[in-house]
Structure formats: structure tokens, C-alpha cells
């Protein structure tokens, strides 16, 4: 394609965004819903799990921490395949009929973000724990009270971790493609649409979605940055 063609595609993409194109909005919204829900569920599992890894004393703790760290960078296609096998007709959860639904995408992304949340939470909480361990012991905190208090103490750093998880979930393509199937008006999210439209040659829509995705990621990072700064000025 010529430079002029790309330029035209860009300006068409911008006018799609400016006009709040229905299709673009619908796809962006689904992305946000799927990834937002996945991260919300993922943080409820990952953050306490990471904190327990930091505070707890049990056999296998070291191994679990290494696993969480390793799974942080799990390739999303691998997660997609595993969840696909679990949800497919012949799989153990096949009867639920979840394959190729938004729910399947949420499940895959939960699997994707939990290790990330747990690994970051473990690191952050462990640093804080080193500082507080003796105070908490003197106050006779049990481990549950310690975990809860530490999660509270680290809430701003952890919020930043959550935003990182949201960024990862929204920009991955492998897992949602495999378990969602990229079905029009049903499981089509930003990343899968971009892949599809580009291969179909519908560049304006692909570019428009790409720009929206980048804008959202930048927004998340900006938010993370300001929250961290605000908290540091307020509490440290």
C-alpha cells in the first residue's frame, strides 16, 4: 500500500473516532468489560494470594513464589489453549457451553492476570512485612490480620499493579482469540478486531481501534503515575 493510502486510512480512522462510530464503541466497550471483570476477579484472588506468600510460613512457599513469578510472563496463546481444552465440548467443563462466549474470555484473562497480581503483591507486601513484622508480633497479630493490614498499607502500590494487570489483559490477543473466537457482535474485542480487520484490509477500522487501545493504555499509565505520586506525597 502507498504512503498516500496509509494517510487516507489514518484520516478515515480519525473520523471514525471523532464520530463515535458505533462499531468502534461497541468493540472498545466489550474489551473494557471483559478485561475489567477479569482484573476485578483476578485481584480478589491474586492480591491476597501474593500477600499470603509473603507472610506465610509453609512448605513449598518458595516454589509457589517462583511459579507466580514465572507465570507472570505466561504466553497468552498458551493460556488460551489450556482454557480452550477445559471448556471445549469434550473437556471437563464442556457441558457449561461457555466456549466462544465473553465468559470464556473473562476466564482466560483471569488465568492470565492472577499470577501477575500475585507476584507483584508478594513483592510489595514482603517489603512492607520486613518493616512491620516485629511491630505486628508485639501487637499479637495473627497471620490473617497481618495480611489484611499489609494489603491495606500497600493499597496504592497494589492499585498500580492492578492497572498494570488491566493493561496486560486489554492488550493480549492470543487467549481471547482462541476461547472467544472473535465472533462479530459477541466476542469481538479490540485486539482480535485489529488482527482480523488488518488481514481483511479494512485498515481504517483497525487503525481506529488501535488508537483507542493506545489511548486507553496511556490513560491507565497516567492514572497509575498520578495515584503513585499523590500517595507518596500524602503518606510517605
Amino acid at each position: 500500500m502507498s504512503i498516500g493510502g496509509i494517510g487516507a486510512a489514518f484520516s478515515e480512522a480519525l473520523s471514525l473516532i471523532a464520530a463515535f462510530d458505533h462499531q468502534v464503541l461497541e468493540i472498545a466497550l466489550l474489551s473494557l468489560q471483559v478485561s475489567g471483570l477479569a482484573v476485578a476477579i483476578g485481584l480478589l484472588i491474586g492480591l491476597p494470594a501474593g500477600a499470603c506468600l509473603a507472610v506465610g510460613r509453609f512448605p513449598g512457599k518458595q516454589t509457589l513464589a517462583i511459579v507466580a513469578n514465572g507465570f507472570m510472563g505466561l504466553p497468552s496463546v498458551v493460556v488460551g489453549v489450556v482454557v480452550y481444552l477445559l471448556l471445549s465440548r469434550s473437556g471437563p467443563f464442556g457441558e457449561l457451553g461457555l466456549l466462544y462466549t465473553p465468559t470464556a474470555m473473562v476466564i482466560a484473562q483471569v488465568v492470565l492476570v492472577v499470577p501477575l497480581m500475585a507476584a507483584i503483591s508478594r513483592q510489595v507486601v514482603e517489603d512492607a512485612w520486613r518493616e512491620y513484622a516485629e511491630e505486628f508480633a508485639a501487637m499479637r497479630f495473627n497471620w490473617r490480620q497481618s495480611v489484611r493490614t499489609l494489603l491495606y498499607d500497600c493499597r496504592y502500590s497494589l492499585f498500580v499493579a492492578v492497572l498494570a494487570g488491566l493493561g496486560r489483559a486489554m492488550s493480549e490477543v492470543g487467549a481471547v482469540m482462541i476461547v472467544g473466537g472473535n465472533i462479530d457482535r459477541s466476542t469481538r474485542v479490540m485486539t482480535t478486531s485489529i488482527a482480523l480487520e488488518t488481514s481483511k484490509g479494512d485498515l481504517p477500522l483497525a487503525i481506529a481501534l488501535g488508537l483507542v487501545l493506545i489511548a486507553l493504555i496511556l490513560l491507565l499509565n497516567g492514572l497509575a503515575f498520578s495515584v503513585r505520586n499523590w500517595a507518596m506525597r500524602r503518606f510517605d
Binding site: E131, Y132, E135, M139, R140, F141, N142, Q145, T149, Y152, D153, C154, Y156, A231, F235, D236
Partner: peptide, 19 residues
């Protein structure tokens, strides 16, 4: 060197009552 939570004074004062 008492260690304080990253929180308001009142939260820290109340901390010992949690257990």
C-alpha cells in the same frame, strides 16, 4: 523506632485493637 502504617494518625492509633 516505631513503625507507622502508610495511613492517618487515627488509623495507626487504633491498630493495636485489631488483635
Amino acid at each position: 523506632q516505631p513503625i507507622m502504617l502508610r495511613a492517618a494518625v487515627i488509623e495507626n492509633a487504633a491498630l493495636g485493637l485489631i488483635p
